[in-house]
């Protein structure tokens, strides 16, 4: 792999919310740029901290954000990257959260599950356990700054070594999920509009599934928010002519899991995308399906011009395809908070 095609960052935020980082990039970065990159991890985790405030439930965790990259103009050699992935491991001890967050920009479609496995099962536990052991052995002599530097080097080297593996099919991709909403996003030179389609405000299912997600409001803002953060990250690494499109956002809270799965198409400089908000707690429902089903349905709308309303009814007949919740202004988002996020 050519170094200049690789962006690799690893951030650790500890119990005191201090952020430590290790960045691998082919050219030196100024201190100012480094400190801007350092804030990225907190920005990515931001919406879920917001969710904590909203629902007083502190365990929502961002696991991953995956996006594909598209070039609109002629790109330089160093801009040839295909995948942009953010993976996060959050661990709680005595109610205090530590996060290990990584940003990967790579020219290949990576085996993300393998990297994620190493992040949550090895690199993050190594930091937590190593701290305990070193404190026990070295007591007052223990230097945390040196220790975390060694651990982040270990982590970033291990992630780098894992890059370049072909993507595999994993059993959890065949698991069934239940769709509780669809976000439509249209982006062109003249128009930028996003809408949410979900249950009617008086439908009891709206309240039933409210606790299965961080909130309707948070889910509604996530795709735009993360796409903007990825653009910000790419610009910090001088990737000016490539643009991200969200593929997947993966969140969890104890045994609850939420996936946001999106597909897009570009026609005459207009980018159109549809994303499903999927949950894992109705897997036996007749309206539950695997990820391939949802991907196919979105592709039919985008590529074959299949009727959106009809397809939405096929996906989940309880969702109202004719009532759209606009996501482009603070007023309309506040309406989502006050209507969808409040119990009837």
């Amino acid at each position: 792999m050519q170094d200049k095609n690789l962006i690799l960052c690893l951030f650790y935020s500890d119990e005191e919310k201090r952020v430590f980082d290790k960045i691998k990039y082919y050219e030196p970065l100024s201190n100012e740029r480094k400190s801007m990159i350092r804030t990225l991890s907190l920005k990515f985790l931001g919406p879920l901290l917001l969710a904590e405030g909203l629902i007083k439930e502190k365990e929502w965790t961002l696991n991953r954000v995956e996006s594909t990259l598209t070039s609109y103009k002629k790109i330089t050699e160093s801009e040839i990257i295909q995948s942009f992935i953010c993976l996060n491991s959050s661990k709680f001890s005595d109610g205090i959260r530590t996060n290990l967050f990584t940003i990967i920009g790579s020219p290949y479609t990576e085996d993300i599950n393998l990297i994620y496995y190493k992040l949550i099962k090895y690199i993050h536990p190594s930091i937590l356990q190593g701290k305990i052991v070193n404190e026990s052995i070295n007591r007052n002599e223990f230097n945390f700054n040196n220790f975390i530097d060694v651990e982040l080097t270990r982590g970033i080297n291990l992630i780098e070594h894992s890059l370049g593996s072909a993507r595999k099919m994993y059993w959890n991709e065949k698991q069934n999920y239940y769709c509780i909403g669809i976000i439509e996003r249209i982006d062109s030179e003249d128009l930028k509009v996003s809408n949410l389609y979900t249950f009617d405000s008086d439908n009891p299912l709206k309240d039933k599934y409210r606790s299965s997600i961080p909130s309707y409001y948070v889910m509604a803002i996530l795709p735009d928010y993360y796409e903007d953060r990825i653009v910000e990250a790419l610009r910090l690494f001088n990737k000016m002519n490539i643009h991200p499109s969200i593929r997947l956002i993966d969140l969890s809270c104890k045994n609850k899991k939420v996936l946001y799965l999106e597909e897009f198409s570009i026609n005459n400089d207009e980018k159109k995308s549809y994303g499903m908000i999927l949950i894992n707690n109705e897997i036996n429902s007749k309206d539950s399906n695997d990820l391939i089903f949802y991907k196919q349905k979105i592709r039919l709308i985008l590529d074959k011009n299949k009727n959106f309303e009809e397809t939405l009814i096929e996906i989940n007949p309880n969702i109202n395809p004719f009532k759209k919740w606009n996501l482009n202004s603070q007023i309309s988002l506040s309406k989502i908070q006050s209507v969808l996020d409040v119990k009837n």
Partner: peptide, 19 residues
């Protein structure tokens, strides 16, 4: 595997096998 150094070999083998 092609490792750059033995440190990475140790971490990779432990994470994939011995854990």
């Amino acid at each position: 595997e092609q490792y750059t150094d033995y440190h990475t070999a140790i971490d990779d083998c432990i994470s994939l096998f011995f854990l």
